[in-house]
Amino acid sequence: MPSKKKTILRILIYLVLAFAPAFAIELIFSDKQGDVTNAFWGATLMLYPAIASIITRLVTKEGFRDAMLGFGRRGSAKYYAAAVLYPLVLPFVGAAILHLFIVKNGSVSDSAFGSDVVMGFASLLIGLASGIATLFHGLGEELGWRGYLTPKLEQLMPTPAAVAVTGIIWALWHGPLLAYGYNFGRDYDFFPYGGFIAMTVMCISWSALLTWLTKRTDSVYPAALCHMLIDTVAVFLLFAYNAEGEYFEFAVPEFWVKILALFPMIIASGAVCMVLISRKKKVPSGT
């Protein structure tokens, strides 16, 4: 195992390489609303963590032995299934909470999804299909965060702390976009700090889930698959709109809608995964 100093140096090289191009694009091409104006550079954003990890591995001559590029160990199929199922279940659990507790003037059947089930399922399937096809983008982030950063941090601290620190760094990587309202909008009292806090909680939870998938399979593909599908199977919003394409009336401000509807499952799954990856493997007696 390399010395602590060497590991810290490798982490620093990686972070500079991952953050510099992303921050440059997010700042130079910012539309000041949480998105980027340049479609091309915007489309490259997810690739920088992987590019950073590849360059770092080449520069530090670490090689790719521990890059987890194989399919995974025997019995990994159930984790691949979990990686697909989680993003499919998440919007529906969110929709159930949304319509049970948050929406004031309608039901699921009035929503854009419920009023046009064919289109709803078509969106779901197309999202699923395009998520798998664009897995390389998901790999672009996961090769960096779960494939490089978390294992390196684990050499410096316990696994749960490494997972949490990765989550915080991952959230901060979206910093310039968050500062302008990415993911959570701008229309809330404590903008933009609320967005930062919410993103950090979300990233730590997903960091636990994705690290669990990576560790159990010894492969980055399930995490990349799960990450990409979370991004593409975005049917939750179809439950937040009515058939006319207008937002329902909510019992809470808009900022809290996503948090109250989606965060329970995100945090619960993250907590369970954190416990699972923290558990020490039992050493058989007599060894």
């Binding site: 046009d116 289109m119 399922f121 078509a122 399937l125 299909a129």
Partner: peptide, 13 residues
């Protein structure tokens, strides 16, 4: 278009 998209989704998967 809706039906086409649904079939595209099913066939691709």
């Amino acid at each position: 278009l809706k039906k086409l998209l649904l079939w595209v989704g099913v066939c691709t998967l």
